[in-house]
């Protein structure tokens, strides 16, 4: 998937988000513009309260901007109804949360299928696809397990498989490694890199430099505005061997 005339996964221009409170209006985003080409790997950084989560919620179609436009493919999210936003989330957005957010009463494979359930394309073929994704994240032998029976790293891998099931425009990861130890963080970052190498677009929020150096590009926010938008200079890349090694360790961990 080499995008020579670069196709855009998302085009954001003049994006503003205001929260109207009783006493004041909080301007969480004050006009943010950038483009995310397909296959990009973006780290969004910035101090607390700078608007990272607000931006990510807009990118994830969980909210509508106050001003500005957000083009997802050919559709402008700013003008969509609540149900249309839901439909977009079900069909073209992949979420990975800091606290995994798997549904406790569902098994691994059923958790992976949830977006398809709301998209309405659940069938035996999609079941095969979900099983394939579970295998890809190294949990092929845990299909029937419940989230409580898995470690944090394993749960996050299920969440990543879930974010891929609807073939999304991009994966949105909000502090996806925030709850994990350094070994498991490596594991998840290696998985992200593998997905990015395969052509997946990834946008992640993080405040750790060790995490952001794995991305291709960093956007730094400050007080609701973009301060810096630049490529990562010394990008840290896992080698083929490292990825193999990590995924082997990860699956042997899941064998326990």
């Amino acid at each position: 998937m080499n995008a020579s005339p670069k196709k855009m996964a998302a085009i954001i221009s003049g994006l503003q988000k205001h929260y109207v409170l009783k006493s004041e209006t909080v301007r969480a985003l004050r006009g943010v513009s950038f483009e995310v080409p397909e296959g990009d790997y973006v780290a969004i950084m910035g101090p607390s309260g700078s608007g990272k989560s607000t931006l990510l919620n807009l990118l994830g179609c969980l909210d509508r901007p106050t001003h500005g436009s957000f083009l997802l493919g050919d559709d402008d999210v700013a003008t969509m109804t609540d149900d249309e936003l839901s439909a977009i989330r079900a069909s073209r957005i992949g979420f990975v949360f800091q606290s995994y957010n798997l549904i406790p009463q569902l098994s691994v494979v059923e958790n992976i299928e949830v977006p398809l359930y709301y998209k309405g394309t659940l069938n035996s073929e999609s079941r095969k696809r979900s099983i394939g994704l579970a295998a890809m994240v190294g949990l092929g032998d845990r299909l029937g397990h419940r989230p409580t029976q898995l470690s944090g790293g394993q749960q996050q891998r299920v969440a990543i498989a879930r974010s891929l099931v609807n073939d999304p425009y991009f994966i949105l990861a909000d502090e996806a490694t925030g709850n994990l130890d350094s070994v498991t963080t490596e594991e998840i970052l290696a998985l992200f890199q593998r997905l990015n190498d395969e052509g997946r677009t990834i946008i992640m929020v993080t405040h750790e430099d060790e995490v952001s150096v794995h991305a291709k590009r960093v956007i730094r926010l400050r007080d609701g505005e973009i301060q810096v938008d630049e490529p990562i200079k010394n990008r840290q890349v896992f080698t083929e061997e490292q990825i193999k090694e990590i995924s082997k360790n990860a699956s042997s961990e899941s064998e326990e």
């Binding site: 994830g60 969980l62 609540d82 149900d83 839901s86 439909a87 989330r89 079900a90 069909s91 957005i93 979420f95 949360f97 957010n101 549904i103 406790p104 949830v114 977006p115 709301y118 998209k119 879930r162 609807n166």
Partner: peptide
Amino acid sequence: TREIGVRRALGAKRSD
């Protein structure tokens, strides 16, 4: 509440 939020994020409509 959390489960509801997750389901909404994963594409559930209000009616779902």
